[in-house]
C-alpha cells in the first residue's frame, strides 16, 4: 500500500468520525449507526497488516476530545474493537457476507458494552438496552458497506 492508499484509509476513517459526531435531533441520536466502529472493522479485516489497534486509539482520542468524554474512554473502546477484529479477521475470509454481519454485530455490541461500563464508572447515567441499536444498525449496513468498499478498493488498487 503506497502513500495514496494510506491517505485514503485515513480519509475514510476521518469521514466516519465526522458522520459519528454530526449533530442530529435528540430523538434520532440512538439510531445513528456506529460509523467509526464499522469502518475501523472494515479496514482491520481488509488490511490487517496496515490498520489496527493504534488507529483505533488515535481515532478514539479524537472522538473523546470532540464528545467531551473522559480522555481515553473511546480510545480504549475503539482499540479493543480493532484488536477483536484483528483476532478474527481470518474467519471473515471464509464466512458468507451475512455471517460476517452477525459477527460484526456481536463484536460492535461488545464494544458498546465496554463503553457503557466505562460510563458507569465515571458517573450516573440512565442505563437501557438502547445502546445496542448503533451496533445492530452498523451490522445491518455491513454487507453493503463491505461490498462497496471492496469495489472502491479494487478500483483504486489499494491493497
Amino acid at each position: 500500500m503506497g502513500l495514496f492508499g494510506y491517505l485514503f484509509v485515513w480519509f475514510t476513517l476521518l469521514l466516519a468520525l465526522c458522520l459519528q459526531v454530526m449533530p442530529l435531533p435528540d430523538a434520532w441520536l440512538v439510531w445513528r449507526p456506529d460509523w467509526l466502529g464499522v469502518l475501523l472493522a472494515y479496514w482491520c479485516v481488509a488490511t490487517p497488516q496496515r490498520v489496527g489497534v493504534i488507529h483505533g486509539f488515535v481515532l478514539g482520542l479524537l472522538l473523546d476530545l470532540i464528545e467531551g468524554a473522559p480522555l481515553g474512554q473511546n480510545a480504549l473502546t475503539l482499540s479493543l474493537l480493532a484488536y477483536l477484529f484483528l483476532l478474527l479477521y481470518q474467519r471473515f475470509r471464509v464466512y458468507s457476507i451475512w455471517q460476517q454481519a452477525v459477527l460484526v454485530f456481536v463484536l460492535l455490541g461488545i464494544g458498546q458494552l465496554v463503553e457503557q461500563w466505562l460510563r458507569t464508572i465515571f458517573g450516573p447515567i440512565s442505563v437501557s438496552l438502547e445502546f445496542l441499536i448503533p451496533a445492530l444498525i452498523g451490522a445491518l449496513l455491513w454487507p453493503w458497506l463491505f461490498t462497496m468498499m471492496q469495489a472502491v478498493r479494487r478500483r483504486l488498487g489499494i491493497g
Binding site: 496496515r50 486509539f57 466505562l118
Partner: peptide, 25 residues
Amino acid sequence: KPLFSYGPVPTYRMLLCAVLAFGLM
C-alpha cells in the same frame, strides 16, 4: 513504509493502548 506496520495479532499493542487509556482516564 507505513507509520504503524505490524503483524496481525498485536497483543502487546493492545496492552499498551489499554494501559495508556486507563492512565489518561
